[in-house]
């Protein structure tokens, strides 16, 4: 009997496979391809207190083995989200993790408070988006700022919180320690790596926002290294992501110390990626006679 369950901050997931925020909407678009009941959790696109229109286009560009995006967190705001997206997700037997974004501490707090009586399992706090001018990553690049906002949100949130960390820092372990010290229940990493692409024929920036976040298989080794560093620096659970394309990648992240894993850009490449990973993990467990998937967490020697 294979046990693929994992537990994060008291919340049990049927398996560790989640969707990375911003790559899966609120599940609706991909429910045509994927049985959401088979996923450990759906992590939603970031939602703010009010609708955000996002950045001008072009917002996405392909790069070698990856992609750059500068969507700018376009979202309908928490009121529409509560009315439309949460009821949609409640139809499925999967955990719901709502990604929360904001430009100021009070923005985040407003969203978190509106979600307090909602049937969602956890909140992921996006303090690491590289594509918005104010807020977002500003909170995620200084350990002091990260500590303060984490503490504020932790005090207001009813559900367990996951601080989502940026890789665009000198020492990600220090950031993770700050989040843990302020009471974060878990951390997720990595958000995208800031990048740039230039169109040499037009001599212009390829993205309207000039810079964007790099994701996809190109960033996976960076993400594995950072998950390993963070898992060894804190006691709270780590959710790992960054270029995960298949079950082998997912297992690599777990061995590095991740309790849960999330699929991001690869949803765009193969809409069935998440389901294939769920099946692939089970096959790996059978191959190596692993009864409990949790045995793999941080088991790299």
């Amino acid at each position: 009997m294979l046990n693929t369950e994992i537990t994060i901050a008291g919340v049990t997931f049927k398996n560790p496979v989640m969707t990375a925020s911003g790559t899966f909407g609120s599940g609706m678009e991909y429910s045509e391809f994927v049985d959401l009941n088979c996923l450990g959790a759906v992590v939603t696109k970031g939602v703010a207190n009010v609708p955000w229109e996002g950045n001008p286009t072009p917002r996405v560009q392909e790069t070698y083995g990856g992609m750059l995006n500068a969507i700018g967190l376009q979202n309908p705001g928490i009121d529409v989200f509560i009315e439309r997206d949460i009821p949609f997700l409640r139809q499925y037997d999967t955990r719901i993790i709502v990604n929360v974004c904001g430009r100021s501490v009070s923005d985040y707090v407003e969203v978190v408070e509106k979600l307090s009586d909602q049937p969602v399992d956890m909140l992921e706090i996006n303090v690491s988006c590289p594509n918005v001018q104010h807020g977002g990553i500003a909170f995620g690049q200084d350990p002091g700022c990260l500590f303060d906002i984490t503490k504020e949100i932790r005090a207001k949130a009813k559900q367990p919180i996951i601080m989502k960390l940026s890789p665009n820092v000198t020492d990600i372990a220090e950031m993770a320690r700050a989040a843990e010290a302020a009471g974060s229940d878990a951390v997720s990493l990595i958000n995208t790596i800031t990048g740039m692409k230039i169109d040499i024929h037009r001599r212009t920036f390829a993205l309207a926002n000039r810079t964007g976040g790099l994701s996809g298989p190109a960033i996976k080794p960076v993400a594995v290294r950072m998950v390993y560093q963070v898992a060894n620096a804190v006691k709270i659970p780590v959710i790992g992501m960054g270029g995960i394309a298949n079950a082998e990648d997912a297992i690599e992240f777990m061995l590095a110390g991740a309790t849960g894993i999330a699929v991001g850009a690869m949803n765009f490449v193969n809409p069935y990626t998440t389901i294939e990973i769920v099946k692939g993990i089970e096959a790996y467990m059978r191959q190596y006679d692993i009864g409990n998937l949790t045995e793999l967490i941080g088991a790299v020697r």
Binding site: T23, Y30, W52, E53, V60, Q74
Partner: peptide
């Protein structure tokens, strides 16, 4: 420029006169 092609990534948007039904922006 598109990534997902199915409405999830919000990469390929166009400005509209009226509020759009997905993001209301």
């Amino acid at each position: 420029r598109m990534a997902c092609g199915v409405g999830a990534c919000l990469g390929c948007v166009v400005k509209t006169r009226a509020v759009d039904h997905h993001s209301h922006v």
